[in-house]
Amino acid sequence: MTVAVIRFGGSNCDRDAVRALEHLGVDAEIAWHEDGLPADPSGVVIPGGFSYGDYLRAGAMAARSPVMTEVREAAAEGTPVLGVCNGAQIGSESGLTPGAFTTNRSARFQCEQVHCRVERADTPFTAAFDEGDVVRLPIAHGEGRFEAEDDRYERLVAEDRVLFRYCDADGTVTDAANPNGSKGGVAGVLGERETVAVLMPHPERAALPDLHGGTDGRGLLRAFA
């Protein structure tokens, strides 16, 4: 069984994801979107990058690729799906998760290390952590601000589907610790199934010791093991 890492035109974190997964002993392979998913993947990663140059709206064009129909079908059958950065934008655009990721409050591209608080520790993606743990992960996006209408956001919170929130090093969610202005400090959310998650920070860039970015991302990627 192999994790499929989808590559669109413009993806630039697909190889990073494969390398990080293989470092953890997980079989992974790149799947070109026009070829569709391989048979019976054990998981699917929608990686970061700038699919289709982020023209129109980040993730909007890739979300309409036929492979995303296959991803939605796989997700409905319980296959774990993880969208990272541009993959999160694609995931929300394709209806895998609620809300949308829009232009940063700063209106600038931001590349930095951030802290995120684990809001749920009983999901496949966060089973290596305890609720309230703080992880340090890198971000690199221009459209990472999570937005949702008030009633939809309240429902998301009521259904306990917020996976991560931006916080300070002590785990306090503050506006100052929110790098992009995301509503409620949301950094990652779950889909209708708890085997589907999207997040803006990059766990694959915090999985290899020689990258000097820490290794807090390993816990998320072990979900596919």
Rank of each mutant, 00 (worst) to 15 (best):
D151L: 13
R193H: 10
E192G: 09
P98F: 11
S182H: 04
L220V: 15
R136S: 13
A206M: 05
T172L: 12
E194A: 14
K183Q: 05
D210I: 08
P66N: 14
E22V: 08
I139R: 00
A207Q: 07
N12H: 07
G191E: 01
A128L: 06
R117I: 05
L163E: 07
T97L: 12
E143M: 02
W32I: 14
A58Y: 10
D175N: 11
G49D: 02
A88M: 11
D14M: 08
A177R: 10
G59Q: 03
G9E: 09
R19T: 09
G184H: 12
G188D: 06
G171Q: 07
T215C: 13
T123H: 01
L221P: 03
E73W: 02
E143Q: 12
R222A: 09
P41W: 00
A63L: 05
E119T: 06
Y166C: 05
T126H: 01
R145W: 07
H33D: 10
G43C: 05
N178H: 13
A74T: 07
A158N: 06
E29S: 15
C13M: 03
Y153A: 04
E29Y: 08
P203W: 10
M68E: 01
V173E: 14
R64S: 08
D27C: 00
G217P: 01
R105M: 13
R7K: 13
G95I: 11
A76L: 10
R117G: 02
T174P: 10
A39L: 13
T2Q: 06
D216L: 08
G78K: 09
P124V: 09
T172W: 00
A60H: 11
D160P: 05
G83F: 12
D151Q: 12
D130R: 11
G48H: 10
V44F: 07
P41R: 06
G219N: 03
S106V: 08
L163F: 14
D16V: 03
D170Y: 03
L137I: 09
